[in-house]
Design a protein around this nucleic acid. Sequence first.
DNA 1: TAACGGGATATTGTATCCTATTAATGCTGA
DNA 2: TCAGCATTAATAGGATACAATATCCCGTTA
Lengths: 235, 235
Amino acid sequence: MVNSGQAPAKIKYKRMPELVMDQLMDWIMDGTISMGDKLVAEDLASKMGVSRMPVREALKNMEKSGIVESIPYVGTRVVELTMADVKQIYIMRKALEPIAAYYACKNITDERIETLIAVQEQLERVLFEENPDGKEIFVLNREFHFTIYETSQMRHLVNSISNLWDHLAFFKLIYGRKYVTDKDSAKRVVRDHRSFIELLKNRDCKGLQDAVHESLDRLVSGLNESIEDYIHPNK
Amino acid sequence: MVNSGQAPAKIKYKRMPELVMDQLMDWIMDGTISMGDKLVAEDLASKMGVSRMPVREALKNMEKSGIVESIPYVGTRVVELTMADVKQIYIMRKALEPIAAYYACKNITDERIETLIAVQEQLERVLFEENPDGKEIFVLNREFHFTIYETSQMRHLVNSISNLWDHLAFFKLIYGRKYVTDKDSAKRVVRDHRSFIELLKNRDCKGLQDAVHESLDRLVSGLNESIEDYIHPNK
DNA sequence: TAACGGGATATTGTATCCTATTAATGCTGA
DNA sequence: TCAGCATTAATAGGATACAATATCCCGTTA
């Protein structure tokens, strides 16, 4: 067989719709695709060198998670996120993420905490580089949070939270820039994360729950202006 | 998206994947499809008289909302819902639905309340028929709740809640039977719903929020096992 | 006899083709 | 000129055909 040697059973290769979706999300994050843009399956297909089919599946997936919306026989376009949408998503995040954190704390092992610390160290390294990469920061930040949330072993909950994060893809760019230019935000993130780790070490689950909620609160109030700028750029 | 009116063979109003999914959900609810069953696209396609393509889309959708899971090149099977999953879903419902109710209350018009009352009257009629139809009860119950939630005008939130309800499809049957056989549950539902309506009329939004939460709490405590047992399995 | 490997089979993933639907365009007639 | 209908172009939806991959079975071999 082709697959001679090891790497048994657990190969998780990516299927094409996933790759297509990754590409689209990248384009969304780097601004190539903007809100409201029409996504024509055939154009994307030829641009990516695949047939229309995987593109269709990717779009269907993105529709299901609410990033794009499609009208039968008319087309698919990228959803226009309003300020109200963003607020709504943060309301949901504030409702769900503290719970995930709470149950994660109930379940976490010392070993898992070590993993988390490793991610955090990597994140801090990147954050305080001379020329940080916004996207890398966001990926690592996400990894940090989901390392916690996944520990809750509540797959439905984690899945929903993941969807919410995806919705904010448009703003990853902003976040990245903010952390790059605004060292205070970076320091605040570091402080928050470290306090999460401390609370986890002490198994202070209620404390962690509150801390996550507060952290999100601060995030919202901090980002109001920059989001407003992004939504109404020419104001 | 209430499909008022006809529903003959050749409807062109709903797209086929949706019809396929409806059919599958029906089969899930009536026990034709059980948890763990393998769903072979081609079989389903021929059974429904369509090609594999709409079936694939339907399965993809259901996978996205977590009702089925698929392994590449192997197949799709219906997820096995454990009691822990159910508890988890209720935790999420308790986190989200009170919020939706709260914002619904903030937005609701007298007219909308009338609509709600109409649904409730219909539900009560069915509930206290001599031979109630479990499925009909559940459809009407869902309509009641979502008439409220949709009033919040928070599409992401409502969408997430809708997914959670879909997850419980397997248990709709059970619940339905419960309401049929156990008149006390039926009465409790009626009481809860009527109190929701009353709170809405008074625009007591915080009260409604709490009432929804408590109502869900009572539902959960009706379920035997504790979530703690699952989350800390070896205790 | 048990373990390994190759091939048959089943089923999904992808490509291509055809059809249905919509929206835009243009023609006709008042 | 404009309203209204017919026609057409563009594009999504659906069917079919083909490729890729995993699983299972069976024969070979130590």
